[in-house]
Simulated assay, not measured.
Amino acid sequence: MLLGLRGPAGPGSGWLDRRLPLPGPRRRLRAWRRTRPFWGGLLVILGGTELLLVPLSPLTVLVSLGLGGIAAIGIGLALVAAGLFLWLLPQTRAYVSIHALLLSVLSFVATNLGGFLVGMLLGIAGSALAFGWTPAPDPEAGGEGPYVPSLDGSGPRTLAAALPVVLLASLVAGTGEARAAPAGPPMAARTPPTVTTALFAPQGFAFAGVTHVPTVDGPLKVLVLRMRAATLTDYELRSRDGREEYGLAAKRLDLSGDVTLYLTKFSGCIEGLLCVTFSPDGLPAPPVIPPFVFMTRVSAEQALVTSDVIKTDDLRLVAS
């Protein structure tokens, strides 16, 4: 009965198979595919490609997150290389799939949330399929399938030594253009002024940790936020040092270049919905922030701000 279900032409040649074109090439492709973790390698390659496409996308909403965009290119290239190794050197599947799994998990914290989870999940699924794949034994050769390892160390298996070099070269190529860390911040005011804005729209927004900035009264603990650019609408800065308050106001303030904010307090409503407050000793900011995030009703205690370019619209002095 089983033979009858497969059809009179033999195994693997069902009704649909007999009617599809190019039977010879399809048969050879099927034979080649069954001797290696094909689907696992394909998912790993797709995951790496998706990680590459996110920071390279021309859409303005898909912008890279500072160094996260550069890391996405390096990890994406490494995953594509790992997928090709799974296809071309299937005997190294355990070694390669473990590296692909580690890179996929690393992409969540080092890149754009693992390509918004899609690239990370494809890489994890592909590496799991590749690691669990087992070839049919070859009784004549006494080994795994058609690729028996050479006893003298030569042959395809020795090419697996190139995998760490490929992975390392991909990561170095992705991070080689990263800027050197900027010098330490200048001295801040004794009491940080208060900044308010109706809309805070950053580009390449990332949380860079907690540090101390010098003041005349000693070091001040601050949050460090870095970005490529930011737009602040209905911007107002007011000094809190002394009895009289004074400051600046503008309809719009544009920061661009290497922008760094040093804040003792930062509060606002994410996407205008979820209102939160961050401080050096309170709720920590996440290491990476999705590129489409904006905040409304922002209030911050700003110890320092550094930027390559600052542009304003309708700048005026305010006092009270």
Rank of each mutant, 00 (worst) to 15 (best):
M1C: 02
L167N: 10
A81Y: 01
E271D: 12
P280T: 00
A181S: 13
V118K: 03
G83K: 05
K221D: 14
I310C: 05
R6P: 00
F38C: 04
V298Y: 04
A130F: 09
L43F: 11
L43W: 06
A110K: 13
E177Y: 11
P139L: 15
L5G: 02
S279P: 03
Q203W: 12
V276I: 07
P137S: 07
A249C: 11
L168S: 13
S320T: 12
A229K: 07
R27P: 02
D308K: 06
R18I: 06
S104E: 05
I310D: 14
G268A: 03
P21I: 08
P135W: 12
V213F: 04
T233P: 02
A173F: 13
P214L: 08
A125L: 13
G10A: 01
P11R: 09
F131N: 01
I73W: 09
T196W: 10
L220C: 05
S64E: 15
R34S: 15
R28S: 11
A181R: 10
F85D: 08
P149D: 05
R33A: 15
G41C: 09
S256G: 12
V305H: 11
L248S: 11
P23Q: 03
P164K: 00
P135E: 15
C275G: 06
G48R: 04
D138H: 14
A136M: 12
A285C: 00
V259A: 04
M227P: 01
